[in-house]
Design a protein around this nucleic acid. Structure first.
Lengths: 145, 145
DNA sequence: CGCTTTTATGAGACTGAGTCTCGTTTGTGT
DNA sequence: ACACAAACGAGACTCAGTCTCATAAAAGCG
């Protein structure tokens, strides 16, 4: 059977990496799977505390670390010193971020031309590119008004 | 007389914004002007402490803030939770960043095709773009070896 | 130049995200 | 069911960044 959801694939990846399955880990995977865009560790803890299974800060950072190493989660740095994390999804889920500098709102976007440019760029650059992450800042429609 | 160096232009911009000229400010401008790429606030403080004029943390953050508002300095978020700052230079100085995920090295790069793509993208996107900043992560030549 | 006013500066308290440690709990293979 | 290794949580700790307030230094003026 093909693992269909991101959570299933992530759980599989972790177990293949030799990790066991604990309650905190399961709760975190489940929560992340429901997210469309990036969350901070603090938001994750907050969201979990309103649910059946809570998780400590230590567990959250530990699991996020493991997931990042497994390539199932990606850090998104949108500034203000706090890191955000989001599930890595293939194809249709892949996106970049627009950040409004006034209200701080985070908005996902995709652009085929940009992807083509980046993939060509990867070959010209003195770095073996693993992931790319484009953050564009400006004023969103609401704030620009 | 045309202000030739970045430091002169920055000093002018600040004085036009109504700020006075203090010792810490001058030292910070001078240091930033010598930089080719982005520094953290901590690095700035460290670099200054090996020189004639030191500056306190408060002054450094204050001056960086004023410079950012004046558009003379740009934040660069390359991760690990610490923000970097670099002088904004027109034309030839404009660049983006390659970050090595293993050793953390930061490397500036420029790419004309990328710039064209971004400028076209700016028109398609629901945001009034003020600055763009591309961070590409991967393994640098030394670490990939 | 000396005086006054106003701003810049620094010391250090404070905040909050993220890390680390270690004792306890829980999963897993036998 | 048992043993043992790994996951977990509580809380101490770190460190970048913020804030406050007393003091020092600019700038303008007589």
């Amino acid at each position: 059977m093909q693992p269909s959801s991101w959570a299933q694939r992530a759980a599989l990846a972790l177990s293949e990496a030799g990790y066991r399955q604990g309650g905190a880990r399961r709760a975190i995977l489940e929560l992340l799977d429901e997210q469309e865009c990036a969350l901070t560790a603090v938001e994750i803890q907050g969201a979990l505390s309103g649910r059946s299974r809570e998780a400590s800060r230590a567990s959250i950072y530990r699991v996020l670390d493991e997931l990042e190493t497994a390539g199932m989660v990606q850090r998104v740095e949108i500034g203000r010193g706090t890191v955000r994390f989001e599930p890595v999804r293939e194809g249709p889920g892949h996106h970049h971020h627009l950040v409004c500098e006034r209200c701080g709102r985070l908005q996902p976007f995709t652009d085929a031309e940009l992807e083509r440019t980046i993939s060509r760029l990867s070959e010209r650059v003195p770095l073996e590119v693993s992931v790319h992450e484009i953050v564009i800042r400006g004023a969103c429609r609401v704030c620009a008004r």
